[in-house]
Design a protein around this nucleic acid. Structure first.
Lengths: 244, 244
DNA sequence: GGTGCGCGTTGATCTAGGTTATCGGGCCGA
DNA sequence: TCGGCCCGATAACCTAGATCAACGCGCACC
Protein backbone atom coordinates (compact mmCIF):
# COMPACT_ATOMS: atom_id res chain seq x y z
CA UNK A 1 0.00 0.00 0.00
CA UNK A 2 1.42 3.37 -1.02
CA UNK A 3 1.62 6.20 1.53
CA UNK A 4 -1.33 8.60 1.63
CA UNK A 5 -0.71 11.64 -0.55
CA UNK A 6 0.04 14.80 1.41
CA UNK A 7 -3.20 16.45 0.27
CA UNK A 8 -5.29 13.88 2.16
CA UNK A 9 -6.07 15.93 5.28
CA UNK A 10 -7.50 18.71 3.09
CA UNK A 11 -9.67 16.32 1.12
CA UNK A 12 -10.91 14.80 4.36
CA UNK A 13 -11.81 18.19 5.76
CA UNK A 14 -13.60 19.15 2.54
CA UNK A 15 -15.39 15.82 2.40
CA UNK A 16 -16.95 16.61 5.77
CA UNK A 17 -18.62 19.59 4.14
CA UNK A 18 -19.55 18.33 0.68
CA UNK A 19 -19.14 15.46 -1.76
CA UNK A 20 -15.79 15.51 -3.58
CA UNK A 21 -15.70 13.64 -6.87
CA UNK A 22 -12.74 11.47 -7.94
CA UNK A 23 -11.96 13.98 -10.66
CA UNK A 24 -11.83 16.74 -8.06
CA UNK A 25 -9.60 14.65 -5.79
CA UNK A 26 -7.27 14.16 -8.71
CA UNK A 27 -7.24 17.89 -9.47
CA UNK A 28 -6.43 18.73 -5.84
CA UNK A 29 -3.72 16.10 -5.62
CA UNK A 30 -1.96 17.55 -8.65
CA UNK A 31 -1.88 20.98 -7.02
CA UNK A 32 0.93 20.45 -4.54
CA UNK A 33 4.62 20.67 -5.29
CA UNK A 34 7.47 18.92 -3.43
CA UNK A 35 7.34 19.06 0.36
CA UNK A 36 9.81 21.01 2.43
CA UNK A 37 10.71 20.97 6.14
CA UNK A 38 10.57 24.13 8.22
CA UNK A 39 12.14 24.05 11.70
CA UNK A 40 10.34 25.52 14.71
CA UNK A 41 10.75 29.27 14.99
CA UNK A 42 11.46 29.88 11.32
CA UNK A 43 9.16 32.00 9.16
CA UNK A 44 7.37 30.29 6.28
CA UNK A 45 6.26 33.57 4.79
CA UNK A 46 7.38 37.09 5.66
CA UNK A 47 5.02 40.07 5.93
CA UNK A 48 5.04 42.03 2.68
CA UNK A 49 6.04 39.01 0.57
CA UNK A 50 4.43 38.56 -2.85
CA UNK A 51 4.48 34.77 -3.13
CA UNK A 52 3.67 33.05 -6.42
CA UNK A 53 2.40 30.02 -4.56
CA UNK A 54 0.29 29.30 -1.49
CA UNK A 55 1.67 27.12 1.30
CA UNK A 56 -0.13 24.03 2.51
CA UNK A 57 0.63 22.46 5.91
CA UNK A 58 1.26 18.72 5.66
CA UNK A 59 2.19 18.34 9.34
CA UNK A 60 3.21 20.52 12.28
CA UNK A 61 1.92 23.76 13.74
CA UNK A 62 2.31 27.25 12.44
CA UNK A 63 0.79 30.65 13.09
CA UNK A 64 0.05 33.81 11.18
CA UNK A 65 1.66 36.80 12.90
CA UNK A 66 1.84 40.55 12.74
CA UNK A 67 4.68 42.49 14.37
CA UNK A 68 3.96 45.94 15.77
CA UNK A 69 6.44 48.84 15.64
CA UNK A 70 6.56 48.73 19.45
CA UNK A 71 7.97 45.20 19.47
CA UNK A 72 4.71 43.36 20.06
CA UNK A 73 3.62 40.26 18.17
CA UNK A 74 0.03 39.18 17.58
CA UNK A 75 -0.73 35.68 16.34
CA UNK A 76 -3.96 35.90 14.35
CA UNK A 77 -4.52 32.22 13.59
CA UNK A 78 -3.02 28.82 14.37
CA UNK A 79 -2.72 26.59 11.32
CA UNK A 80 -2.45 22.83 11.45
CA UNK A 81 -2.15 19.91 9.01
CA UNK A 82 -4.72 20.27 6.23
CA UNK A 83 -4.72 24.09 6.27
CA UNK A 84 -3.42 26.54 3.73
CA UNK A 85 -1.62 29.31 5.58
CA UNK A 86 -1.87 31.90 2.82
CA UNK A 87 -4.41 30.78 0.26
CA UNK A 88 -5.61 34.38 0.25
CA UNK A 89 -2.31 35.51 -1.24
CA UNK A 90 -3.65 34.19 -4.55
CA UNK A 91 -5.93 37.25 -4.49
CA UNK A 92 -4.33 39.67 -2.01
CA UNK A 93 -1.00 39.30 -3.85
CA UNK A 94 0.92 41.07 -1.08
CA UNK A 95 1.02 39.41 2.34
CA UNK A 96 -0.51 41.55 5.07
CA UNK A 97 1.13 39.34 7.71
CA UNK A 98 3.77 36.63 8.14
CA UNK A 99 3.59 32.94 8.99
CA UNK A 100 5.92 31.26 11.47
CA UNK A 101 6.44 27.61 12.35
CA UNK A 102 5.54 27.06 16.03
CA UNK A 103 6.93 23.53 15.80
CA UNK A 104 8.79 21.66 13.08
CA UNK A 105 6.56 21.61 10.00
CA UNK A 106 6.33 19.88 6.66
CA UNK A 107 4.74 22.09 4.02
CA UNK A 108 4.04 21.96 0.28
CA UNK A 109 3.47 24.74 -2.25
CA UNK A 110 0.47 25.15 -4.57
CA UNK A 111 1.47 27.40 -7.47
CA UNK A 112 -0.85 30.37 -7.97
CA UNK A 113 -0.79 29.63 -11.67
CA UNK A 114 -2.25 26.18 -11.02
CA UNK A 115 -4.76 27.53 -8.50
CA UNK A 116 -5.91 30.10 -11.02
CA UNK A 117 -6.31 27.38 -13.66
CA UNK A 118 -8.31 25.38 -11.15
CA UNK A 119 -10.71 28.33 -10.72
CA UNK A 120 -11.22 28.30 -14.49
CA UNK A 121 -11.92 24.58 -14.72
CA UNK A 122 -13.45 23.49 -11.41
CA UNK A 123 -16.09 25.92 -10.09
CA UNK A 124 -17.22 23.56 -7.34
CA UNK A 125 -13.69 23.00 -6.10
CA UNK A 126 -13.15 26.73 -6.31
CA UNK A 127 -16.10 27.28 -3.98
CA UNK A 128 -14.65 24.77 -1.55
CA UNK A 129 -11.29 26.53 -1.56
CA UNK A 130 -13.10 29.84 -1.20
CA UNK A 131 -14.81 28.30 1.83
CA UNK A 132 -11.41 27.57 3.36
CA UNK A 133 -10.60 31.28 3.37
CA UNK A 134 -14.11 32.12 4.58
CA UNK A 135 -13.63 29.84 7.59
CA UNK A 136 -10.35 31.62 8.30
CA UNK A 137 -12.38 34.82 8.44
CA UNK A 138 -14.93 33.24 10.78
CA UNK A 139 -12.13 32.11 13.08
CA UNK A 140 -10.74 35.65 13.11
CA UNK A 141 -14.17 37.00 14.03
CA UNK A 142 -14.46 34.56 16.89
CA UNK A 143 -11.07 35.61 18.22
CA UNK A 144 -12.17 39.24 17.96
CA UNK A 145 -15.10 38.42 20.22
CA UNK A 146 -12.70 36.67 22.59
CA UNK A 147 -10.23 39.57 22.71
CA UNK A 148 -12.93 42.22 22.91
CA UNK A 149 -15.36 40.64 25.35
CA UNK A 150 -13.88 37.72 27.26
CA UNK A 151 -11.47 37.66 30.17
CA UNK A 152 -8.19 35.80 30.14
CA UNK A 153 -9.52 32.48 31.43
CA UNK A 154 -12.41 32.39 28.96
CA UNK A 155 -10.11 33.19 26.06
CA UNK A 156 -7.76 30.39 26.94
CA UNK A 157 -10.64 27.95 27.39
CA UNK A 158 -12.05 29.01 24.03
CA UNK A 159 -8.74 28.52 22.29
CA UNK A 160 -8.34 25.02 23.71
CA UNK A 161 -11.85 24.04 22.58
CA UNK A 162 -11.26 25.39 19.08
CA UNK A 163 -7.91 23.70 18.65
CA UNK A 164 -9.21 20.37 19.87
CA UNK A 165 -12.12 20.36 17.41
CA UNK A 166 -9.96 21.44 14.52
CA UNK A 167 -7.33 18.84 15.27
CA UNK A 168 -9.96 16.20 15.73
CA UNK A 169 -11.48 17.14 12.35
CA UNK A 170 -8.03 16.79 10.80
CA UNK A 171 -7.74 13.33 12.37
CA UNK A 172 -4.81 14.42 14.56
CA UNK A 173 -6.54 14.46 17.95
CA UNK A 174 -8.76 11.93 19.74
CA UNK A 175 -10.16 11.27 23.22
CA UNK A 176 -9.85 14.89 24.35
CA UNK A 177 -6.07 14.70 24.14
CA UNK A 178 -3.74 16.39 21.69
CA UNK A 179 -0.22 17.59 21.25
CA UNK A 180 0.14 21.38 21.29
CA UNK A 181 3.78 22.41 20.94
CA UNK A 182 3.35 26.07 21.88
CA UNK A 183 5.19 27.93 24.61
CA UNK A 184 3.34 30.16 27.06
CA UNK A 185 4.86 33.13 25.25
CA UNK A 186 3.21 31.94 22.01
CA UNK A 187 -0.09 31.56 23.84
CA UNK A 188 0.23 35.09 25.17
CA UNK A 189 0.76 36.39 21.64
CA UNK A 190 -2.42 34.60 20.56
CA UNK A 191 -4.54 35.73 23.48
CA UNK A 192 -3.22 39.27 23.80
CA UNK A 193 -1.80 38.50 27.25
CA UNK A 194 1.64 38.40 28.82
CA UNK A 195 3.40 35.12 29.40
CA UNK A 196 3.11 35.71 33.13
CA UNK A 197 -0.64 36.02 33.00
CA UNK A 198 -1.03 33.06 30.68
CA UNK A 199 0.79 31.03 33.30
CA UNK A 200 -1.47 32.30 36.08
CA UNK A 201 -4.62 31.47 34.15
CA UNK A 202 -3.35 28.11 33.01
CA UNK A 203 -2.44 27.16 36.57
CA UNK A 204 -5.99 28.11 37.53
CA UNK A 205 -7.52 25.85 34.87
CA UNK A 206 -5.28 23.05 36.10
CA UNK A 207 -6.22 23.62 39.74
CA UNK A 208 -9.91 23.54 38.77
CA UNK A 209 -9.29 20.21 37.08
CA UNK A 210 -10.41 21.41 33.63
CA UNK A 211 -7.25 20.58 31.72
CA UNK A 212 -3.88 18.95 32.05
CA UNK A 213 -1.04 20.49 30.08
CA UNK A 214 2.43 19.07 30.33
CA UNK A 215 5.36 19.31 27.90
CA UNK A 216 3.20 20.17 24.92
CA UNK A 217 0.57 17.52 25.64
CA UNK A 218 -2.95 18.75 26.43
CA UNK A 219 -5.70 16.67 28.00
CA UNK A 220 -9.17 18.10 28.49
CA UNK A 221 -10.60 16.69 31.72
CA UNK A 222 -13.95 18.49 31.66
CA UNK A 223 -15.10 19.37 28.15
CA UNK A 224 -18.47 20.77 29.21
CA UNK A 225 -16.97 23.05 31.82
CA UNK A 226 -14.37 24.26 29.32
CA UNK A 227 -17.07 24.98 26.73
CA UNK A 228 -19.06 26.90 29.34
CA UNK A 229 -16.08 28.89 30.52
CA UNK A 230 -15.00 29.71 26.95
CA UNK A 231 -18.59 30.34 25.77
CA UNK A 232 -17.65 28.08 22.90
CA UNK A 233 -20.05 27.47 20.00
CA UNK A 234 -18.46 25.53 17.12
CA UNK A 235 -20.78 26.77 14.34
CA UNK A 236 -18.08 29.10 13.03
CA UNK A 237 -15.74 26.19 12.26
CA UNK A 238 -18.23 24.95 9.66
CA UNK A 239 -17.56 21.28 10.27
CA UNK A 240 -21.09 20.23 9.28
CA UNK A 241 -21.99 18.72 5.95
CA UNK A 242 -23.78 21.27 3.75
CA UNK A 243 -23.11 21.20 -0.01
CA UNK A 244 -21.90 24.37 -1.68
CA UNK B 1 -29.28 60.55 -17.81
CA UNK B 2 -30.54 57.53 -15.90
CA UNK B 3 -29.53 57.10 -12.24
CA UNK B 4 -26.41 55.03 -11.57
CA UNK B 5 -27.29 51.40 -10.86
CA UNK B 6 -26.96 50.42 -7.24
CA UNK B 7 -24.09 48.04 -7.98
CA UNK B 8 -21.84 50.94 -9.03
CA UNK B 9 -19.85 51.33 -5.78
CA UNK B 10 -18.86 47.65 -5.95
CA UNK B 11 -17.77 47.88 -9.57
CA UNK B 12 -15.74 50.99 -8.73
CA UNK B 13 -14.03 49.24 -5.84
CA UNK B 14 -13.26 46.20 -8.01
CA UNK B 15 -12.04 48.38 -10.87
CA UNK B 16 -9.38 49.78 -8.54
CA UNK B 17 -7.98 46.27 -8.24
CA UNK B 18 -8.39 44.86 -11.74
CA UNK B 19 -9.91 45.47 -15.17
CA UNK B 20 -13.63 44.66 -15.30
CA UNK B 21 -15.01 43.94 -18.77
CA UNK B 22 -18.39 45.25 -19.94
CA UNK B 23 -19.70 41.65 -19.92
CA UNK B 24 -18.65 41.31 -16.29
CA UNK B 25 -20.25 44.64 -15.36
CA UNK B 26 -23.44 43.41 -16.92
CA UNK B 27 -23.28 40.12 -15.01
CA UNK B 28 -22.74 41.95 -11.72
CA UNK B 29 -25.57 44.40 -12.38
CA UNK B 30 -28.01 41.55 -12.95
CA UNK B 31 -27.13 40.05 -9.59
CA UNK B 32 -29.01 42.44 -7.33
CA UNK B 33 -32.69 42.24 -6.49
CA UNK B 34 -34.98 45.11 -5.45
CA UNK B 35 -33.61 47.48 -2.81
CA UNK B 36 -35.02 47.67 0.69
CA UNK B 37 -34.66 50.24 3.49
CA UNK B 38 -33.49 49.22 6.93
CA UNK B 39 -33.84 51.74 9.79
CA UNK B 40 -31.00 52.39 12.23
CA UNK B 41 -30.83 49.83 15.01
CA UNK B 42 -32.58 47.06 13.12
CA UNK B 43 -30.85 43.78 12.29
CA UNK B 44 -30.32 42.95 8.62
CA UNK B 45 -29.35 39.39 9.41
CA UNK B 46 -29.67 37.46 12.65
CA UNK B 47 -27.00 35.10 14.02
CA UNK B 48 -27.85 31.54 13.06
CA UNK B 49 -29.84 32.53 9.96
CA UNK B 50 -29.48 30.44 6.81
CA UNK B 51 -30.08 33.08 4.17
CA UNK B 52 -30.61 32.10 0.52
CA UNK B 53 -29.19 35.44 -0.60
CA UNK B 54 -26.33 37.73 0.36
CA UNK B 55 -26.99 41.34 1.29
CA UNK B 56 -25.30 44.23 -0.49
CA UNK B 57 -25.10 47.70 1.05
CA UNK B 58 -26.25 50.41 -1.35
CA UNK B 59 -25.98 53.22 1.21
CA UNK B 60 -25.72 53.66 4.97
CA UNK B 61 -23.63 52.01 7.67
CA UNK B 62 -23.98 48.60 9.21
CA UNK B 63 -21.92 46.30 11.38
CA UNK B 64 -21.42 42.60 11.90
CA UNK B 65 -21.99 41.70 15.55
CA UNK B 66 -21.77 38.81 17.97
CA UNK B 67 -23.64 38.78 21.26
CA UNK B 68 -22.08 37.04 24.25
CA UNK B 69 -24.07 35.10 26.85
CA UNK B 70 -22.97 37.68 29.41
CA UNK B 71 -24.74 40.51 27.58
CA UNK B 72 -21.73 41.87 25.73
CA UNK B 73 -21.71 42.80 22.06
CA UNK B 74 -18.68 42.77 19.79
CA UNK B 75 -18.79 44.47 16.40
CA UNK B 76 -16.39 42.61 14.14
CA UNK B 77 -16.56 44.79 11.02
CA UNK B 78 -18.13 48.01 9.83
CA UNK B 79 -19.69 47.73 6.38
CA UNK B 80 -20.38 50.67 4.08
CA UNK B 81 -21.80 51.29 0.62
CA UNK B 82 -20.27 48.88 -1.88
CA UNK B 83 -19.76 46.06 0.64
CA UNK B 84 -21.49 42.72 0.93
CA UNK B 85 -22.24 42.09 4.60
CA UNK B 86 -22.57 38.32 4.30
CA UNK B 87 -21.16 37.17 1.00
CA UNK B 88 -19.60 34.34 2.96
CA UNK B 89 -23.04 32.92 3.75
CA UNK B 90 -23.01 31.57 0.19
CA UNK B 91 -20.47 29.04 1.49
CA UNK B 92 -20.86 29.06 5.28
CA UNK B 93 -24.62 28.54 4.87
CA UNK B 94 -25.32 29.27 8.52
CA UNK B 95 -24.51 32.77 9.82
CA UNK B 96 -21.91 32.75 12.59
CA UNK B 97 -22.87 36.35 13.49
CA UNK B 98 -25.55 38.97 12.87
CA UNK B 99 -25.57 42.26 10.99
CA UNK B 100 -27.17 45.43 12.34
CA UNK B 101 -27.83 48.80 10.72
CA UNK B 102 -25.88 51.49 12.58
CA UNK B 103 -27.69 54.15 10.58
CA UNK B 104 -30.54 54.00 8.08
CA UNK B 105 -29.45 51.75 5.23
CA UNK B 106 -30.52 50.84 1.73
CA UNK B 107 -29.61 47.27 0.85
CA UNK B 108 -30.18 44.83 -2.01
CA UNK B 109 -30.10 41.03 -2.12
CA UNK B 110 -28.01 38.83 -4.41
CA UNK B 111 -29.59 35.38 -4.61
CA UNK B 112 -27.21 32.55 -3.77
CA UNK B 113 -28.55 30.69 -6.75
CA UNK B 114 -27.41 33.53 -9.03
CA UNK B 115 -24.08 33.85 -7.24
CA UNK B 116 -23.50 30.13 -7.66
CA UNK B 117 -24.30 30.38 -11.37
CA UNK B 118 -21.87 33.28 -11.59
CA UNK B 119 -19.12 31.06 -10.14
CA UNK B 120 -19.85 28.56 -12.93
CA UNK B 121 -19.73 31.10 -15.75
CA UNK B 122 -17.38 33.88 -14.68
CA UNK B 123 -14.18 32.61 -13.07
CA UNK B 124 -12.51 36.00 -13.07
CA UNK B 125 -15.48 37.67 -11.44
CA UNK B 126 -15.59 34.81 -8.97
CA UNK B 127 -12.01 35.55 -7.98
CA UNK B 128 -12.89 39.21 -7.48
CA UNK B 129 -15.83 38.29 -5.25
CA UNK B 130 -13.60 35.84 -3.41
CA UNK B 131 -11.20 38.74 -2.92
CA UNK B 132 -13.99 40.72 -1.24
CA UNK B 133 -14.28 38.05 1.45
CA UNK B 134 -10.51 37.77 1.69
CA UNK B 135 -10.26 41.49 2.42
CA UNK B 136 -12.89 41.05 5.14
CA UNK B 137 -10.55 38.50 6.67
CA UNK B 138 -7.60 40.88 6.41
CA UNK B 139 -9.63 43.58 8.17
CA UNK B 140 -10.48 41.13 10.93
CA UNK B 141 -6.79 40.28 11.34
CA UNK B 142 -5.88 43.93 11.60
CA UNK B 143 -8.51 44.46 14.29
CA UNK B 144 -7.11 41.45 16.13
CA UNK B 145 -3.75 43.17 16.19
CA UNK B 146 -5.44 46.31 17.45
CA UNK B 147 -7.35 44.53 20.22
CA UNK B 148 -4.44 42.35 21.22
CA UNK B 149 -1.56 44.81 21.07
CA UNK B 150 -2.68 48.44 20.95
CA UNK B 151 -4.00 50.69 23.68
CA UNK B 152 -7.32 52.48 23.50
CA UNK B 153 -6.08 55.64 21.79
CA UNK B 154 -4.18 53.72 19.09
CA UNK B 155 -7.17 51.52 18.39
CA UNK B 156 -9.46 54.48 17.90
CA UNK B 157 -6.92 56.23 15.70
CA UNK B 158 -6.54 53.06 13.63
CA UNK B 159 -10.28 52.71 13.19
CA UNK B 160 -10.63 56.29 12.00
CA UNK B 161 -7.82 55.83 9.46
CA UNK B 162 -9.33 52.62 8.13
CA UNK B 163 -12.83 54.02 7.81
CA UNK B 164 -11.62 57.12 6.05
CA UNK B 165 -9.66 55.16 3.43
CA UNK B 166 -12.51 52.73 2.84
CA UNK B 167 -15.07 55.50 2.52
CA UNK B 168 -12.78 57.43 0.24
CA UNK B 169 -12.35 54.34 -1.95
CA UNK B 170 -16.13 54.04 -2.10
CA UNK B 171 -16.34 57.67 -3.22
CA UNK B 172 -18.22 58.65 -0.05
CA UNK B 173 -15.49 60.63 1.73
CA UNK B 174 -13.14 63.39 0.58
CA UNK B 175 -10.81 66.00 2.05
CA UNK B 176 -10.26 64.06 5.31
CA UNK B 177 -13.91 64.54 6.26
CA UNK B 178 -16.69 61.98 6.46
CA UNK B 179 -19.97 61.25 8.08
CA UNK B 180 -19.83 58.51 10.71
CA UNK B 181 -23.22 57.94 12.34
CA UNK B 182 -22.02 55.77 15.24
CA UNK B 183 -22.63 56.39 18.91
CA UNK B 184 -19.85 56.11 21.46
CA UNK B 185 -21.50 52.89 22.64
CA UNK B 186 -21.13 51.47 19.11
CA UNK B 187 -17.50 52.54 19.05
CA UNK B 188 -16.94 50.82 22.36
CA UNK B 189 -18.40 47.60 20.97
CA UNK B 190 -15.99 47.84 18.05
CA UNK B 191 -12.91 48.64 20.10
CA UNK B 192 -13.60 46.36 23.04
CA UNK B 193 -13.91 49.36 25.38
CA UNK B 194 -16.64 50.88 27.51
CA UNK B 195 -18.50 53.93 26.30
CA UNK B 196 -16.97 55.91 29.15
CA UNK B 197 -13.44 55.13 28.07
CA UNK B 198 -14.21 55.77 24.40
CA UNK B 199 -15.33 59.22 25.43
CA UNK B 200 -12.17 59.89 27.42
CA UNK B 201 -9.92 58.79 24.57
CA UNK B 202 -11.91 60.71 21.98
CA UNK B 203 -11.73 63.86 24.11
CA UNK B 204 -7.98 63.34 24.22
CA UNK B 205 -7.68 63.08 20.44
CA UNK B 206 -9.73 66.25 20.16
CA UNK B 207 -7.59 68.10 22.70
CA UNK B 208 -4.47 67.07 20.79
CA UNK B 209 -6.01 68.52 17.65
CA UNK B 210 -5.91 65.21 15.73
CA UNK B 211 -9.61 64.98 14.90
CA UNK B 212 -12.87 66.85 15.16
CA UNK B 213 -15.99 64.76 15.75
CA UNK B 214 -19.35 66.43 16.13
CA UNK B 215 -22.82 65.04 15.56
CA UNK B 216 -21.68 62.15 13.39
CA UNK B 217 -19.28 64.26 11.30
CA UNK B 218 -15.59 63.43 11.49
CA UNK B 219 -12.75 65.65 10.31
CA UNK B 220 -9.17 64.47 10.46
CA UNK B 221 -6.95 67.45 11.28
CA UNK B 222 -3.61 65.66 11.32
CA UNK B 223 -3.55 62.54 9.15
CA UNK B 224 0.12 61.79 9.68
CA UNK B 225 -0.15 61.98 13.44
CA UNK B 226 -3.24 59.77 13.38
CA UNK B 227 -1.45 57.19 11.21
CA UNK B 228 1.49 57.23 13.59
CA UNK B 229 -0.68 56.89 16.68
CA UNK B 230 -2.73 54.09 15.13
CA UNK B 231 0.31 52.37 13.58
CA UNK B 232 -1.76 52.30 10.44
CA UNK B 233 -0.52 50.55 7.30
CA UNK B 234 -3.18 50.31 4.56
CA UNK B 235 -1.74 47.29 2.72
CA UNK B 236 -4.42 45.04 4.22
CA UNK B 237 -7.22 47.01 2.54
CA UNK B 238 -5.87 45.91 -0.84
CA UNK B 239 -6.78 49.14 -2.60
CA UNK B 240 -3.92 48.84 -5.11
CA UNK B 241 -4.36 47.69 -8.69
CA UNK B 242 -3.07 44.13 -9.08
CA UNK B 243 -4.91 41.80 -11.49
CA UNK B 244 -6.17 38.50 -10.18
C1' DG C 1 -44.78 72.85 27.51
C1' DG C 2 -43.53 69.34 30.44
C1' DT C 3 -41.07 65.03 30.57
C1' DG C 4 -38.69 60.99 29.55
C1' DC C 5 -34.60 59.40 27.58
C1' DG C 6 -30.75 58.59 24.47
C1' DC C 7 -26.33 60.42 24.14
C1' DG C 8 -22.24 62.73 25.58
C1' DT C 9 -19.34 64.29 29.47
C1' DT C 10 -16.95 63.96 33.78
C1' DG C 11 -15.43 62.34 38.48
C1' DA C 12 -14.22 58.72 42.06
C1' DT C 13 -13.02 54.31 42.90
C1' DC C 14 -11.81 49.51 41.81
C1' DT C 15 -9.55 45.49 39.45
C1' DA C 16 -7.77 42.48 35.71
C1' DG C 17 -3.92 42.12 33.89
C1' DG C 18 0.85 44.24 33.03
C1' DT C 19 5.60 44.90 34.69
C1' DT C 20 9.63 43.59 36.83
C1' DA C 21 12.24 40.37 39.15
C1' DT C 22 13.67 35.97 40.90
C1' DC C 23 14.32 30.93 40.90
C1' DG C 24 14.63 26.15 39.27
C1' DG C 25 14.85 22.57 35.94
C1' DG C 26 15.97 20.65 31.52
C1' DC C 27 18.78 20.76 27.60
C1' DC C 28 22.43 21.75 24.51
C1' DG C 29 26.77 22.97 23.08
C1' DA C 30 31.95 23.95 24.40
C1' DT D 1 31.03 18.76 33.30
C1' DC D 2 30.23 23.14 33.26
C1' DG D 3 27.84 27.26 31.79
C1' DG D 4 24.32 29.48 29.27
C1' DC D 5 19.71 29.82 28.19
C1' DC D 6 15.01 28.72 27.24
C1' DC D 7 10.91 27.74 29.59
C1' DG D 8 7.74 27.48 33.38
C1' DA D 9 6.38 29.13 37.97
C1' DT D 10 5.67 32.84 41.54
C1' DA D 11 5.71 37.02 44.10
C1' DA D 12 5.34 42.30 44.67
C1' DC D 13 3.85 46.16 42.82
C1' DC D 14 1.68 49.23 39.25
C1' DT D 15 -1.60 51.11 35.61
C1' DA D 16 -5.04 51.14 31.82
C1' DG D 17 -9.33 50.70 31.61
C1' DA D 18 -13.76 49.09 34.03
C1' DT D 19 -17.41 50.28 37.06
C1' DC D 20 -20.59 53.22 39.26
C1' DA D 21 -22.65 57.49 39.61
C1' DA D 22 -24.14 62.02 38.43
C1' DC D 23 -25.36 65.79 35.24
C1' DG D 24 -26.65 68.41 31.00
C1' DC D 25 -28.42 68.82 26.57
C1' DG D 26 -31.40 68.06 22.69
C1' DC D 27 -35.47 66.12 21.06
C1' DA D 28 -39.33 63.24 20.28
C1' DC D 29 -43.71 62.39 22.20
C1' DC D 30 -47.80 63.03 25.20
Amino acid sequence: MSPAPVITPLIEKMARRDVITPVEREALAKLLGPTRRVPAGKALVEPGDRPHFSTFVVSGFCARFTLTPTGGRQLTEINVAGDFVDLHSLLMRQMDHGVVALADCVVAPAAHEDLRRLTEQHPHLTRLLWLETVVDGAIHRQWLVALGQQNAASRLAHLICELYLRLEAAGIARDLTFSLPMTQVDLGDVLGLTQVHVNRVLMDLRRQGLVEWKSGQVTINDWDALVRLGQFNPVYLRLQSDPV
